[in-house]
Design a protein around this nucleic acid. Structure first.
Lengths: 259, 259
DNA sequence: TATCATTTGTTCGTATGTATC
DNA sequence: CGATACATACGAACAAATGAT
């Protein structure tokens, strides 16, 4: 019997009590927590207070609530997919990326025309509102079912250099790398990782549970003279995947700041 | 007047209406949204319904609510700190990391003894529950105030190879790299990025706002024979920082999966 | 300094809808 | 069908933070 007393709001005390019980291992993962009615009796509080506490734990990602069934302790294991972000190439000029997951295309890639934004423009050394090709893909990992949203942005100037890109902006990234190499570029990549909460429709397409962040990767492919050529974005649910990089020491300090 | 009708729960309709208004730009960032009382009148719903809608938008990270003041539209700009994760070295055998931010130590580093877990053990090729040194640091970026939690794990076996580490487990990472190099190792690094919601105390130390994920980096330093030497963890609030990697193509496909 | 209006936070009560088994 | 459990909605009251008077 833990008659709750001290700190802050009632519902926070209840939430803290449940949280401790979970972290102490009193409730196994994937186990049903006491029902709201039981929690009301257990802590002697009203229904709204219990719901408030449960909502807090839900926002922390600690529990998963299902309508009509109950609240489950979320398993705290690491994500199933380790997404290697290395790029490798063969002697025949072919590239391989996306190590560690086997992506299938859920839908056909959709090509559209887009415009640079305040974010994507500077990264490509372009002005804002300049037109470019955009190709969107919805991917799914074969073994885990984890989903990912992939987008490629190809400036018109680059498409002119490589006619095959202008005709088929939905070329797969590996193949684009090969084409750019064939066009005389020596490639290198620069990638940033952000995390944020998904918008509702984003959460739906990525099939992300409540309180799950989205990993948002932005990759720029650089050609000769370190000039940016294309931009790729990859968004995926952080509860299913983590991202992996290999780092090797370089002699030159590498500074790169936002424009 | 948008008399709300169709989809789903009332509070979700209200939330959707406000969300659209925000994304359409009807409310500037850092601007006060209508108060709860005004929203009640505006949509003709009760206070709990309005609060439910506001809570949903808050969980999405779209708005920021402050007690006694009101709800603000969150600015959607990119995080201020770009944390370069390259490693560079000089001809004198010194290493430099953490490009892009100037970290100050908020508190003195605290050294303790820890044990490997089911997660950290395999990464270091150790069994579970083996003892090792742990050094924790609370860092802050000078210009933005962004905070980060840094932890170094040093297995006893490695400390024996490098006596200076056994005496001073609170040596700074750059210096540790230099020491390991001096001990005859050629270093390379392997880093994974995860995102998750913070625990309450974690959120407090990192000074992260509501609905803000935490970026959790795990870096393994490999020595000769690709053997893992030390493990570093870095946790930081995703609304203040993003992480940046440089990728160069390698000839050998590089597979690395969890043990 | 003190008070007051405004605004969000917390807590109770109550009723009804809907998913699961 | 009924029992259980979570979801939604309304009403009401007081607490606490904020900013201005």
């Amino acid at each position: 019997m833990s008659e709750i007393q001290r700190p802050g709001a009632l519902y926070q005390q209840v939430a803290a009590a449940i949280r401790e019980a979970i972290l102490k291992g009193e409730y196994e993962p994937d186990t049903l927590l006491p029902s709201e009615a039981q929690l009301m009796a257990r802590y002697g509080v009203s229904r709204p207070t219990v719901r408030n506490a449960v909502a807090a734990l839900r926002a922390e990602g600690l529990i998963d609530v299902r309508h009509g069934k109950g609240s489950f302790v979320r398993s705290t294991s690491r994500p199933g997919v380790i997404l290697g972000r290395q790029v490798t190439y063969t002697s025949t000029g072919e590239f391989t990326t996306h190590t560690g997951a086997a992506w299938d295309q859920v839908e056909d890639p959709s090509v559209s025309r887009a415009r640079t934004t305040a974010i994507t423009g500077p990264l490509l050394y372009l002005e804002e509102e300049e037109a470019l090709f955009a190709c969107d893909r919805l991917l799914a990992d074969a073994s885990t079912g984890a989903r990912a949203l992939h987008r490629v942005l190809i400036p018109f100037a680059v498409a002119e250099q490589v006619p095959e890109l202008a005709e088929h902006p939905d070329t797969e990234p590996d193949r684009i790398y090969a084409l750019l190499t064939k066009a005389g570029h020596t490639l290198s990549w620069f990638e940033t990782v952000r995390a944020r909460m998904p918008l509702p429709d984003e959460r739906a397409t990525l099939q992300a549970p409540d309180a799950t962040p989205v990993l948002h990767l932005t990759r720029i492919t650089h050609g000769n003279d370190d000039h940016p050529l294309i931009l790729e974005e990859l968004r995926l649910s952080a509860d299913r995947a983590e991202v992996a990089y290999r780092i090797t020491a370089s002699k030159q300090p590498n500074r790169r700041t936002r424009a």
